[in-house]
Nucleic acid binder design. Structure first.
Lengths: 239, 239
DNA sequence: ATATCTGTATGATATTTATCAGTTCATGAT
DNA sequence: ATCATGAACTGATAAATATCATACAGATAT
């Protein structure tokens, strides 16, 4: 067997093997095997170190990204030159959101917050499959629109809370949704927390200190331990 | 010819005749005539008076809405029991946004801000066509995702502006995007403006008065005339 | 006509949040 | 080793915004 064929077969077999991959399962459920194989074959995987930029706001859209592992920050410079973090994406998220369907340029800068593996597919191939296979399209829309709606919801939640409420919200979010532990290492700086929830760095620091003094959390650099969940929840609820 | 058939033919002919209808044109471009006819036949049109609620947040999703004419407010009660206006939708907007693709209940209350005509389609029929006709699906996604992204952008713009900048933004928006005139009748109360851009009613009133005293606008009840566009733009730009 | 309500309006004051200034601490560069 | 740099931190003060109180006009009900 010529090496090239052997190689391509091994590639097919090895490339889409993550059993918990949401995208893979969507593809396998709704796309005929031949198409699915093509997709898996052209798939590229890229690894990013903590802090590395995956794609920059304004770059022409050419690919569809899927987070295999790691954590990705989506940020954007506002028309007022202020930096905003839109959301922090987790494994199995499509980090392009819906922008790819109607824009020519990536709307957000994506940065790896920790060691991150990204699966990359040519966008036109994804679009082709979207056009050919309705259920695949619907699956993509469902997940992407859920993310978009969650972002809108996050903004509403922020805007109806004071600073303490927002910090409480952020800590609860990291603890419950991302790390699923009462103790975790913050993946972002105080400045970035400020950019995530729209306040100043000084006040992020100040309020974290307050929470520490009130025995709600323990702080050790970037390590946070939530010791009084109920109080934090209360501050979130009625802050 | 039996009356029922005559009726249904006249219905077919009369029901989807708006030449500038974005949805109609999307359908006619990508859906075979037989399917398109079914869609136009089951279409219902409903008229709402100013102030009437079209659908309430939390109601089970059953229909796809399209604004034929008028103006619709999308609002939501936050988890803090505070009312938020997400956006104001114009003719040719799909006011369900993307929520319909992944939720069971409408996420937002939709209220007519003026006399409004809504075209209503059973959601499952739209989903069927989405599954069968890729280009139709893509068209729906493109428009809906554009709206979602615009809402996210609106939040970022608000959050990086002070109150004067936000009011300027709102006035410019009404003038340029909605009424395309320097003089227009505000379709919402001062309280609703406050809910749209996240501030208090008193401050909305106060800042409108400031703008009036600074000869930037003229106010006559709900009627606003922008007399100094450049100043307003400046306040928007660097407020 | 009177009462009542809601929206608009304005001023005084309180509260929240941002800004500014300065310290410490860790980190990487020279 | 020391120097610069940036992040974390704190306090004092300024600025922005919300809250509270009050008034008044217009609409609606009694």
């Amino acid at each position: 067997m010529p090496e090239s064929i052997a190689h391509s077969i091994s590639k097919m077999k090895s490339d889409c093997q993550c059993e918990n991959c949401v995208l893979r399962n969507l593809i396998f459920a709704h796309v005929p095997e031949t198409d699915a194989d093509v997709l898996c074959e052209v798939k590229k995987e890229k690894k990013f170190k903590k802090g590395e930029i995956i794609i920059e706001q304004g770059a022409p859209i050419s690919d569809f990204f899927y987070i295999k592992s790691g954590l990705v920050k989506l940020s954007k410079v506002s028309d007022q030159k202020r930096n905003y973090i839109i959301t922090i994406a987790k494994p199995h998220d499509y980090i392009n959101l819906l922008t790819i369907f109607h824009e020519k340029e990536y709307a957000y800068t994506m940065t790896a917050l920790e060691y991150t593996e990204i699966c990359i597919f040519p966008l036109n191939l994804i679009i082709d499959l979207t056009l050919k296979h309705g259920n695949f399209a619907l699956g993509i829309i469902k997940k992407a629109s859920k993310t978009s709606d969650a972002i809108i919801d996050k903004f509403i939640k922020h805007n109806s809370r004071n600073l303490r409420g927002r910090i409480a919200m952020t800590l609860l979010d990291f603890s419950l949704s991302i790390y699923k532990s009462h103790i975790f290492e913050l993946p972002i700086s105080r400045k970035e927390i400020a950019e995530l929830i729209g306040m100043t760095t000084e006040n992020v620091i100040r309020i974290l200190s307050e929470f520490r003094k009130e025995d709600i959390i323990k702080i050790n650099g970037k390590e946070i331990e939530i010791i009084d969940f109920d109080r934090l929840k209360m501050i979130f609820d009625h802050g």
